[in-house]
């Protein structure tokens, strides 16, 4: 199993677009936004926080959403289309291992992306390291797992790589929107903010555990539930060819 993960990790690192979007993009976006003076001036309107402070959780969402809803379904659907999964099933190793390896690679890539982001936050913009490290870790992990499970579900049901890409993009856009990637969350109507709090990967829980207090158990529980349900359904209904 370790060898499969290791191989898939190497393959991930060889796709420049994947590495740029999943690992570097959130940090680059932070640097670009942080370069605008107005966005790094404390605003009394939201409790003397700067825009970039309020935006860190969205940057996490971007990294996790890309890995779970873009990279994963694309890779898995392509593996099915090219017969990679089928070749696995001619060996003593079940092709499900290859899917699990994808999720593990996502967790590793997500962690790498976030460590880089936290470092730049701390060193360049003087943003604190997560205040509630355990809560942050759990929220991130469940966020990554829930989005990966959704990605797997899409790959399980889509007839081919192209439609997998299409469906995944729709879900990706929704997650990005509610995560505040297009419209900062504090500008959203109350109702949209509430919805976003419970959608994976749990943007409010990420924000809270980073710069506030312990995350709300319900906001962490929802991604956990989604991981369980989507993961089980994907495993049960996966088409191997």
């Amino acid at each position: 199993m370790l060898k499969i993960v290791n191989t898939e990790w190497k393959l991930f690192l060889r796709e420049p677009s994947m590495v740029v979007f999943a690992i570097l993009f959130p940090t680059i976006l932070l640097l670009v936004l942080g370069a605008i003076p107005a966005l790094r001036t404390p605003d009394p309107q939201f409790g003397n926080l700067r825009f970039i402070d309020a935006y860190v959780s969205t940057l996490v969402v971007i990294a996790l959403a890309f890995l779970g809803l873009n990279k994963l379904p694309a890779t898995v659907a392509t593996y099915r289309e090219k017969g990679v999964l089928r070749r696995f099933s001619t060996t003593p190793v079940h092709p499900a291992r290859l899917l699990i390896a994808q999720v593990v690679v996502n967790v590793i890539a997500g962690a790498t992306s976030l460590v880089l982001l936290m470092l730049v936050c701390r060193l360049v913009f003087d943003i604190d390291l997560p205040h509630h490290p355990v809560g942050f870790l759990v929220t991130c992990l469940l966020g990554m797992l829930s989005l990966s499970a959704l990605g797997l579900l899409i790959a399980a049901w889509a007839p081919n790589a192209r439609s997998a890409g299409g469906w995944a993009t729709v879900v990706f856009m929704l997650v990005m929107f509610f995560g505040g990637a297009y419209l900062p969350r504090f500008l959203m109507p109350e109702f949209l903010i509430r919805v976003g709090e419970y959608l994976p990967p749990g943007v409010e829980a990420l924000q809270e555990s980073w710069l506030g207090v312990a995350p709300d158990p319900v906001q962490v529980g929802v991604p956990a539930l989604i991981t369980l349900v989507a993961g089980t359904v994907a495993a049960k209904s996966f088409r191997w060819e």
């Binding site: 060898k3 499969i4 191989t7 190497k10 393959l11 060889r14 796709e15 593996y79 090219k82 017969g83 990679v84 089928r86 070749r87 001619t90 060996t91 003593p92 190793v93």
Partner: peptide
């Protein structure tokens, strides 16, 4: 198999080493 490829960027040695481990 009649139709079965490998991931584009896997190296020949890596593929053999991986499958040998199975």
């Amino acid at each position: 198999l009649q139709q079965s490829e490998l991931p584009d960027r896997i190296r020949v040695g890596e593929a053999l080493d991986l499958y040998a481990s199975f």
